[in-house]
Design a protein around this nucleic acid. Structure first.
Lengths: 195, 195
DNA sequence: GGCTTAAATAAACACCATTCATTTAAGTCT
DNA sequence: AGACTTAAATGAATGGTGTTTATTTAAGCC
């Protein structure tokens, strides 16, 4: 077709991103392909490579957005809560609930690996660590006289545990014990910690 | 080449499985291909499909073996321990350590998804649940008068947490807080529970 | 209207999983 | 020993994948 100028470069990037996100939501990583995305927005594959370096970069941008979405949900559900214990409980539930409601986006975020050699860009690392910081801050309110190092370790243990419940909720691989109420499971884990 | 009868069907299956396992260990899921496996054992791809239904079935058998390997390690490191607390602590460390030492086999076991529609065979589900039962049994010794349901829920919360630490250890995605001593992290999580 | 330049394409490359008609040789029967 | 049966193995084809690039097309400008 040649030049059309239907959309700006930024509009096109946005079209690609939302088509890709929709495809991931619908079919997961396995059903994803660059060609399907191109077809969905009415362009050819070649064009995608003028907008993104490759599939991994596209995934990386999608993952940044997913991390943002989780963080927003975390803030929305906890901003009204002054009690740090209530905030941690609610935050953990939000985290697990997101994994359960958006398994394919969750999987792309936590299971997609970049080729050996390249590492996750700092921008993305920061957005994931922000989730962790949330807990760490609330935990600090609970243990005001704990030193920074042991606080970080405590937060890491707690949030790893929550992440484990989220993995359990999202995957059907580990249906240990046939537990289905992941909200209650999350509370149980958090409570074990906050004693 | 046609018929050769160099090996029995069972020998061939075994050759495929060990070549495939080696390839997974070396290159992970991303670097895996049926063609590479065939090349490694000196046969053509077509032959693989006379031995296994498809790639997913091959992966499923590999995963059964990985689950066995984890379970064996679990038993080896805990059979001498009478104290259930010590057994749970040691078991959790073995689990996390395995994820850290064999990240590619771990990923295949917990991140490989079968195509929509088909589900993980019962044989595999049982082998994964065995890992969970290990904890549940030890936990029962600690809480002799707990009813079966709450015991299962408690075990699920604990082992999900341990699984989360294992995911953290195996992936470099969630390097929250730069924790590197996963053994200590595991102990922290287990101890929070066993109080 | 012609020229420049950016946008978009189409076709190619090198892989991939999977299937199946065909070939080959081992084992059996006469 | 030679013909026949049958199981083992191949090789080529099908339809997919990510990625690259020469080429075409049209928009904007002089």
């Amino acid at each position: 077709m040649g030049r059309r100028n239907d959309h700006t470069r930024e509009q096109l990037r946005e079209m690609v991103l939302s088509a890709a996100e929709l495809l991931i939501v619908r079919e997961g990583m396995a059903g994803f392909s660059m060609r399907k995305v191109a077809r969905a927005i009415g362009y050819t594959v070649g064009q995608l490579y003028l907008l993104f370096k490759n599939q991994d970069e596209l995934f990386t941008v999608l993952n940044e957005r997913t991390a943002d979405a989780i963080y927003s949900a975390l803030l929305d559900e906890t901003e009204a809560l002054d009690d740090p214990v209530a905030a941690i409980r609610a935050g953990a539930r939000v985290y697990v609930h997101f994994a359960q409601r958006h398994p394919n986006r969750w999987q792309l975020l936590f299971e997609h690996r970049l080729p050996a050699g390249s590492s996750v860009p700092r921008a993305n690392q920061v957005k994931v660590q922000r989730l962790f910081s949330f807990i760490q801050q609330r935990l600090q309110l609970l243990m005001p006289d704990a030193d920074d190092d042991s606080l970080r370790k405590e937060a890491a243990a707690l949030w790893s545990g929550v992440h484990g419940v989220a993995v359990l909720a999202e995957s059907n691989k580990l249906n240990w014990s046939g537990v289905t109420d992941f909200g209650a499971l999350t509370d149980r884990l958090v409570d074990a910690f906050l004693k």
